[in-house]
Amino acid sequence: MLGKGTRLLAAAAAVVACVVLVGPTGPSGAHFARPLPVDAVKDVVPNRVMTWNICNPCEESNINRAAEIATYAPQVIGLQEACVRDVEKIRDYLELLYGLDYHVRYGAVLRNWGRCGGAPWSPGAYGQAVLSAAPMTDRVVVEYPDGGSEDRGYMAVTTLVGGRSVRVFNTHFAERRQEAVRAGQARVLAAEIARYDRAVVLGDFNAVPDAPELAPVWSLATDTDPECHPSPVGACTTTTDWHSKFDYIFLRGISPLRHRVEPSPHSDHHLVHADLAPI
Rank of each mutant, 00 (worst) to 15 (best):
G3C: 14
G3P: 14
A11C: 04
A12E: 14
A13Y: 06
P24T: 10
G26L: 11
P27E: 06
G29Q: 11
G29H: 12
A33G: 09
D39S: 10
D43A: 12
V44R: 12
C55K: 06
E60T: 08
E60K: 05
R65A: 09
A66G: 11
A67Y: 02
T71N: 08
Y72K: 07
Y72Q: 13
Y72S: 11
Q75H: 00
I77W: 01
L79T: 10
C83M: 10
C83S: 04
V87F: 08
I90S: 03
D92N: 14
D92G: 05
D92L: 06
E95Q: 10
G99T: 02
Y102G: 03
V104R: 01
Y106Q: 03
Y106L: 06
A108W: 01
L110E: 11
G114N: 10
R115H: 08
G118M: 08
G118F: 09
A119L: 11
P123E: 12
A125I: 03
A129R: 11
V130Y: 05
M136T: 07
D138K: 11
E143V: 07
P145R: 01
G148L: 09
Y154F: 15
M155A: 10
A156Q: 13
T158R: 04
L160I: 02
L160Y: 03
G162N: 04
R164N: 07
S165A: 08
V166W: 00
V168A: 03
N170E: 10
T171A: 13
H172K: 15
F173L: 14
Q178P: 12
Q178D: 11
Q178F: 08
E179V: 15
A180D: 15
A180C: 04
A180G: 06
Q185W: 07
V188S: 03
V188Y: 01
V188M: 05
A190L: 09
I193W: 00
I193G: 00
A194M: 02
Y196A: 12
D197E: 13
L202R: 02
P212A: 13
L214W: 07
A215I: 09
T224D: 11
E227I: 08
E227K: 04
P232W: 04
P232N: 05
G234W: 02
C236F: 12
T238P: 00
W242R: 11
Y248Q: 01
Y248M: 02
G253N: 03
G253T: 00
S255Y: 06
L257Y: 05
S264R: 07
H266C: 03
H266R: 08
H269G: 05
H269Q: 06
A274N: 07
A277Q: 08
